[in-house]
């Protein structure tokens, strides 16, 4: 496509235009996925509770996400008196923006990635560790006790679980030999990492639930005690950006699980009649079901239980497993020598 445009806008312009088109495609697809993730969630929850779920707006209730979105567009954004207006409005924008920029390094298929950088895994880790700022800033700028309590809980929770996520990622890197996400996927062409590293995948997934503040770790927003936690003061589009960001982060963590453990775009059992991006999407769909299933099934953790799980169970376990994997790779001489 870049070659086709070169005679009209020059080489730099063509590269720029191609990149812009790629970003636009990813963003539009993501927003659609996010809208239908809310529908998926409501349907799964309804099935778990023997209800029907949304079924009135459009066939099978398929237009429900659109109706919800339109409603939020038409509402008024209220900035409370006593709030810090700049930071109050910056927080949702930051949350949503960070949820979007992380996708720039996720490979959707062979060569199908916006920015194929060599430190892709670290980039994702850095971006996900920034997510906490949107929440802390929102909690502080709202000038409300509920919001502040939610933000405090969130800061402790996200910092704690990041540590074990870091060790899980290091273990995957030991097996793949590269920080480039495309190469991590290619390293799984013979054996998906979910087989030798299955316990680490579980640790990663559960830490992912905690990172995205999802049930059973949703005591950041816990509606029964903090009303809605850090975004209690938000309305209309500012609220919608938080909501979008949360669901986008769910898709992102599912995408990371898929890339790191489930072979990314690789087809299972040699079923190559479907293209790579479709397989990638299907795997994300399956991992997302895990998120919704956990929400429908498990009661909320108490704060001390959350800290105990993160620091006393996941952290020692992931360090031990990492040392064991490194020892095994060195002992058998199978340490990858990638770039």
């Amino acid at each position: 496509m870049a070659d086709f445009l070169t005679p009209y806008i020059g080489h730099t312009g063509a590269v720029f235009a191609t990149m812009l088109a790629g970003i636009l495609c990813v963003v539009v697809v993501l927003l659609l996925c996010m809208a239908y993730l809310t529908y998926y969630e409501r349907k799964v929850l309804a099935a778990a509770m023997l209800r029907k779920g949304p079924n009135v707006t459009g066939p099978f209730g398929l237009l429900q996400p659109m109706a919800d979105g339109l409603k939020l567009f038409l509402k008024e954004t209220i900035v409370p008196t006593g709030a810090n207006p700049v930071l109050f409005l910056l927080a949702p924008v930051l949350t949503f923006g960070l949820a979007l920029v992380a996708w720039s390094v996720i490979p959707f298929g062979p060569g199908l990635v916006i920015s194929n950088i060599n430190v892709g895994v670290l980039y994702l880790f850095a971006i996900s560790s920034l997510g906490v700022y949107g929440i802390i800033i929102a909690g502080w700028a709202s000038n409300s006790r509920y919001a502040f309590l939610g933000a405090m809980r969130s800061a402790a929770q996200m910092v704690s679980y990041e540590v074990s996520i870091g060790f899980v990622i290091v273990t995957v890197l030991l097996c793949s030999g590269s920080l480039n996400l495309s190469k991590v996927v290619e390293a799984q062409s013979h054996l998906w990492f979910c087989i030798p590293l299955f316990p680490m995948m579980v640790v990663f997934f559960v830490s992912g639930l905690a990172e995205t503040n999802r049930a059973p770790f949703d005591l950041v927003e816990s509606e029964s005690e903090l009303v809605a936690g850090y975004f209690v003061e938000y309305s209309a589009m500012a609220f919608a950006l938080f909501y979008l960001g949360e669901y986008m982060n769910m898709i992102l963590v599912s995408g990371m699980t898929t890339v790191l453990f489930l072979g990314g775009w690789l087809a299972p059992f040699g079923l190559t009649f479907l293209p790579g991006p479709i397989w990638f999407g299907l795997k994300i769909f399956v991992v997302l079901f895990g998120f919704l299933w956990a929400r429908a099934t498990l009661p909320r953790f108490r704060y001390d239980q959350l800290m105990r799980l993160g620091w006393k169970i996941f952290l020692p376990f992931s360090i031990l497993y990492m040392v064991a994997v490194a020892g095994f790779l060195v002992a058998t001489g199978t340490l990858p020598n990638g770039g």
């Binding site: 980039y123 850095a126 920034l130 800061a155």
Partner: peptide
Amino acid sequence: AEFLAMILVIVYVGAVAVLFLF
């Protein structure tokens, strides 16, 4: 030096500054 850049963001922005802010 993309590795240093990412480590700077992960360590200082993602962990140290969060605790400062806290």
